[in-house]
């Protein structure tokens, strides 16, 4: 199964290869969508994790033992196609390329890339975007 996780690192874990351990010891395929760290190694990783549900659960147990927070991001935005005029202005707000215009100038939304920042909601002039049910659980 594939899940999206927001992993938040305190400044005490900078010397530990946590992502490496997740990959090596729990056989997880990790696709880093967005990374943001300061000079104190404090920051966050937004990742897509692919692996068996058992391995994902064990991996989460591991990171939490290391004092790292991991939140599932379950769902993201919904584009109401009846309201959307496909202008593409939302793509200006989307940092993760989840919203884009294709060759035909149709609006494409790739849920797997969405980081749930919700910036597009306020940018859409047609008010066609809403945040479905965004729920965070540890």
């Amino acid at each position: 199964m594939k899940s999206k996780l927001l992993i938040t690192f305190p400044n005490t874990t900078g010397d530990k290869p946590i992502v490496y351990n997740l990959i090596k010891n729990y056989d997880l395929k990790i696709n880093i969508i967005k990374a943001s760290f300061d000079f104190n190694f404090r920051g966050s990783l937004f990742v897509e994790v692919d692996g068996s549900s058992e391995n994902i659960a064990r991996g989460l147990e591991y990171v939490e033992q290391e004092g790292v927070l991991a939140d599932f991001i379950n769902s993201t935005i919904t584009v109401d196609r009846a309201v959307c005029v496909e202008c593409g202005l939302c793509t200006s707000a989307c940092q993760s390329q989840a919203l884009s215009l294709d060759q035909e100038q149709s609006l494409v939304f790739q849920n797997s890339k969405c980081i749930g920042c919700n910036l597009c909601i306020k940018v859409c002039p047609s008010r066609a975007i809403s945040n479905g049910v965004v729920s965070h659980e540890s």
Partner: peptide, 13 residues
């Protein structure tokens, strides 16, 4: 720098 339109080329077509 990323660009984005305010007008809909799809509708115009």
């Amino acid at each position: 720098i990323k660009t984005a339109p305010t007008s809909s080329l799809k509708k115009a077509r």
